[in-house]
């Protein structure tokens, strides 16, 4: 299935009134995130957090950046799906212009992307933005 857009996600999550539904939605998003090929999950693509790990493979397709991501934790996978909704197949300019912190705040999930969380998410966002900076 194709992942929803960042606007759709903000709408969807606003619709739920309790945390269980919100987390269930994120878990389901995590399950629907396409899995990476095992041979692509190499050490140099791995961002190791002390709680969970994330792999990131990136490709430049013309003006757009294409990513494959996967975490060993399903909720982090769901959060990665939220990140992908913002960044996938966008131009470097769009990526750099996107307010990721504001986005996670709008989703009421900012504590998951805070630098204090050892889930690798912040590092992935930094890596993607760094790639975009190199392209622009």
């Amino acid at each position: 299935m194709s992942l929803p857009s960042s606007e759709e996600i903000i709408d969807d999550l606003a619709f739920f009134d309790d945390w269980e539904q919100r987390y269930q939605y994120i878990i389901d998003l995590g399950k629907s995130l396409p899995a990476m090929q095992d041979e692509d999950k190499t050490e140099d693509r791995l961002v190791r957090g002390c709680q969970s790990s994330v792999w990131l493979k990136s490709q430049i397709q013309g003006e757009h950046l294409h990513f494959e991501v996967e975490s060993d934790a399903i909720i982090v996978n769901g959060l990665l799906a939220l990140v992908m909704a913002a960044y996938q197949d966008k131009t470097a300019k769009n990526i750099l212009a996107f307010d990721i912190d504001g986005y996670f705040q709008a989703l009421d999930l900012e504590r998951h992307i805070s630098p204090t969380r050892g889930n690798g998410l912040r590092a992935i966002v930094a890596k993607i933005r760094h790639l975009a900076e190199q392209q622009s």
Partner: peptide, 24 residues
């Protein structure tokens, strides 16, 4: 079948503070 980090996330949301990961 569940990653410890996921368990930790859901416990945290219920006010329960545990640690997950490799514990140094």
């Amino acid at each position: 079948g569940s990653h410890p980090a996921d368990v930790g996330f859901i416990l945290d949301r219920q006010g329960i503070a545990i640690r997950t990961g490799d514990h140094c």
